[in-house]
Simulated scan of single mutants.
Amino acid sequence: MITKRYTLAEANALLPEVKQNLEQLQELSHKLEEHYIHYRKVKAGHTELSGELLFEMEGQMDFMQFELQLYMQNFARRGVLIKMINPGLIDFPGVMDGEEILLCWREGEDRITHYHGWHDGFAGRKLHPDA
Rank of each mutant, 00 (worst) to 15 (best):
M72E: 14
F63M: 10
L103M: 09
G94P: 03
L127A: 12
K31S: 12
M96C: 00
D97H: 06
R5T: 14
I37K: 05
Y6D: 05
F75S: 01
I101H: 04
Y115E: 07
G45H: 12
Y36F: 10
N74H: 13
E48W: 08
W118K: 14
G45D: 15
F66C: 00
H114S: 11
M72D: 07
Q24G: 10
E34L: 13
L103V: 09
A11P: 02
L68M: 07
E100S: 03
L103D: 05
E67N: 14
L81W: 05
I2Y: 09
N74K: 13
E107R: 02
H35K: 10
K4G: 01
L68I: 05
H114L: 08
T3Y: 05
S50W: 00
F75C: 04
Q69C: 05
D120R: 09
W118R: 15
K19C: 08
I2V: 15
L14C: 02
E99H: 04
L127V: 15
E34P: 05
E23P: 03
H35V: 02
H30N: 08
H119L: 07
E67C: 15
P87E: 07
H30D: 15
L32S: 14
M64V: 02
H116Y: 03
F55N: 12
G108R: 06
D120M: 13
L22G: 12
N21T: 04
L102N: 02
F63W: 09
L8I: 15
M84N: 12
I101F: 05
Y71A: 01
D97M: 04
M96V: 00
K43S: 14
F66V: 00
Y39R: 13
I85S: 03
F55G: 12
L68F: 10
A123V: 15
I101L: 03
E48R: 06
Q24A: 14
G45Q: 13
E33F: 07
Y6E: 05
I101K: 00
G117Q: 11
V95I: 14
E33Y: 09
N86V: 12
V18C: 05
A11H: 01
F122S: 12
I101D: 04
Q60C: 00
M61C: 10
F122Y: 14
D110K: 14
S50I: 04
L81H: 07
E99T: 01
E99F: 01
K41F: 09
E109N: 02
F92R: 03
Y115P: 00
K4S: 02
E58L: 11
N21I: 00
M72V: 13
Y6W: 10
A44P: 09
Y36C: 03
T113P: 00
D62L: 06
E56D: 14
H38K: 14
V18H: 05
D62P: 02
K4M: 04
I2S: 13
I85P: 00
F55S: 11
M64S: 06
K83C: 04
P87M: 08
H128D: 03
N21L: 10
H30E: 13
T47N: 09
V95T: 11
I101A: 01
V18P: 01
F75N: 02
L68W: 08
A11Q: 03
V95H: 06
L22E: 12
K19W: 07
D97K: 01
G79Y: 02
K41N: 10
E52D: 12
Y71D: 00
I2P: 12
A13T: 13
H114T: 10
Q69N: 10
N74F: 06
D97N: 11
